[in-house]
């Protein structure tokens, strides 16, 4: 039996997020907006609880924060590198596709990994293979298809993605 707090607020983090986003959207902390934000933060999770998939929970907030900061740093640093590639002559360009073998299985960490790979310059994630129709099905080993703008060393790139992004995600989600 779930406690009454759990039933009233099935997803506390989402409730807090909704509250903050509503206040940001209105750009004010007037009492009327606080009341409306509270109502929405409590009401929306309750209304949508029925059709939400169960996601892998994670509790390591400190690691998540470190991960976020590292990704932000990487975005800024590697963009400077991209400028050189973009403004240089086209014939020096070495684009390519790479298959990165994945150890993550669950949907949420995979989504975060794919988004991170897309945001960090030089790589865009194209697809997770093989295609999964049924979310409960066990697919065995899966791959992330990545398009790279400037491909020099395939093995090094795979190693970097696995160590820099996949490893912290596995620690964060304990899988």
């Amino acid at each position: 039996m779930r406690s009454w707090t759990e039933r009233l607020m099935p997803t506390p983090v989402r409730s807090v997020m909704l509250f903050v986003v509503w206040l940001l959207l209105n750009n004010s902390v007037a009492p009327i907006h606080l009341v409306a934000a509270t109502l929405l933060a409590l009401g929306i999770p309750l209304l949508t609880a029925g059709f939400r998939d169960q996601q892998t929970p994670f509790r390591h907030w400190r690691q998540a924060l470190i991960y976020l900061l590292r990704v932000l740093m990487d975005i800024v640093l590697a963009n400077i590198q991209i400028i050189r590639v973009v403004l240089g002559p086209n014939r020096l360009l070495k684009p390519g596709f790479v298959l990165v073998p994945l150890e993550l299985q669950a949907a949420l960490p995979l989504t975060i990994l794919a988004c991170t790979v897309s945001l960090t310059p030089g790589t865009v994630s194209a697809e997770i293979l093989p295609y999964q129709d049924d979310p409960t099905e066990n697919m065995g080993e899966r791959f992330l298809l990545v398009h790279v703008l400037d491909l020099n060393d395939e093995a090094a790139l795979i190693q970097e993605i696995k160590q820099r992004y996949e490893q912290p995600l596995r620690e964060m989600f304990e899988c």
Binding site: N79, I82, V86, L93, L119, G122, V124
Partner: peptide, 16 residues
């Protein structure tokens, strides 16, 4: 405008 094909062009808008 400058990069040669669709997949390389994608890198500009999504990041820079």
């Amino acid at each position: 405008v400058k990069l040669p094909d669709f997949y390389t062009r994608l890198h500009g808008p999504t990041k820079a």
